[in-house]
Amino acid sequence: MNILVAIDRFEDILTSGEASSYIEEGVRAVYPDGNMISVPLFDGQKHLIEGILSWQQGIKYQWQVPDADLRQRDMTTAVIQDCLYIDCTPLFGATANPLKTSSYGLGQVILNGLDLGYRSFTIALGESEVYDGGIGLLEKLGAVFFDREDNRMTGPLSSEHIKYVRRMDLSGLDDRLSESTFKVISDRDYYLFGNDSQIAASLLDDTAKMTIDNNIWYLNEQYKKAGLTLNPKNGGHAGGLRSIFESLFDARILSSKDMIFEETSLKELLEEADIVVYGGGTISPSDSSLVAQAMTQRAGTQLYIYLAAGQQFAPPGEAVHFLNVYPDMTTDTDKLKLGIQLQNGIKTLLTLAKQ
């Protein structure tokens, strides 16, 4: 009996790996001799480093770099097969003042990687709340910005400096960037500005939204003058960082689903499995992750079990057995209680299916 466990995280209560551990115990109680494989998942929003190191062997680096508020923060990255993996959520996931955010720290992380000899980068934008249109990143990488009097602007530059930019010089970008390749993990197809932008979808007040949106629009006009054409339709994730990497560094944009299917043997494992256990949990009403949706589409003659919690919707169709083990999940839910519910839930469903 081949059993595959590929579970998403349950908000910030249980990581994919932690949830898998509880489920594995429940599976073992019913199929003690089963051939079980767990594949911790990465959903594009959090836990890239933990996820990628659970798939493949690598090394970690920890640096102190400026976060979105330009405060020094410990930043963990991973290197696997000479590729530096960067998760932006710990760096840019929470900000004190959205009107004064900077991507400067990401530039520092990339420079650290270049100094160590790496020329391949995978960057997950995740839950980034940085709205400087990339000027902090580009400044750190060697670009120069000038004000109304044609004076060089000194930084670290942030979103509050955008309105002073009158021209820019991108010729000073680090030469090593031209030798480098970038992949950007993004599950959000936001517009760069306007009603369908990340700013518009945020919980900021209307005044802050208007200020940031106008800043991004204005900076985009300055980029055009410098010969840089950004993607306005779906490059707005992380305040335009997605479009900066795509347009300036020829980055390949892919979703977390694409990344997982490319860098793991998940497709083959799904084909070989007799039982597939997957799912995840969210506090607000939402569909399953992109990778879980892709797995649902593959449901066939095998036994597919979807374990959920909170307000995550059931997958469509009748080929999947769905169980919400903890409908009342909140941010204060005890992780042990949730884990035990997952363990008991899978044990009950497998016992019934076995009869």
Rank of each mutant, 00 (worst) to 15 (best):
N2P: 12
I3C: 06
A6P: 01
I7N: 02
D12V: 10
L14Y: 03
E18K: 09
A29R: 15
V30H: 07
Y31F: 14
N35K: 13
Q45M: 13
I52P: 00
Q57S: 14
G58S: 08
I59A: 03
K60T: 15
Y61G: 01
Q64S: 12
P66R: 06
D69C: 09
R71N: 13
R73K: 15
T76H: 05
T77S: 11
A78N: 05
I86G: 00
A96T: 14
A96R: 11
A96L: 08
S102D: 11
S102Q: 07
S103P: 04
Y104A: 08
Q108V: 15
L111C: 10
L111M: 11
G117L: 08
G117I: 06
S120D: 15
G126Y: 00
S128E: 03
E129T: 11
V130A: 06
V130N: 01
Y131E: 08
Y131C: 12
G142M: 12
A143S: 14
V144Q: 13
F146Y: 15
D147K: 08
D147A: 10
M153T: 12
T154R: 02
S158M: 03
E160T: 12
R166N: 15
S171Q: 09
G172P: 04
D174Y: 03
R176I: 07
L177D: 05
S178P: 00
S178W: 02
E179T: 14
S186R: 01
R188K: 13
Y191W: 13
D196K: 12
I199Q: 01
A200R: 06
A200C: 03
L203Y: 14
L204I: 07
D205P: 01
T207A: 11
T207M: 03
M210Y: 12
Y218G: 03
N234S: 15
G239T: 05
R242H: 04
S243C: 10
F261N: 01
T264D: 04
D274K: 06
I275M: 04
Y278H: 10
T282G: 02
L290R: 15
Q293L: 07
T301L: 05
A308K: 05
F313D: 07
P315S: 12
P315L: 12
H321W: 11
F322D: 06
P327C: 07
D328I: 11
M329Y: 08
K335G: 04
K337H: 09
L338A: 12
G339Y: 03
Q343L: 09
Q343V: 02
N344A: 13
L350Y: 03
L350G: 04
L350F: 05
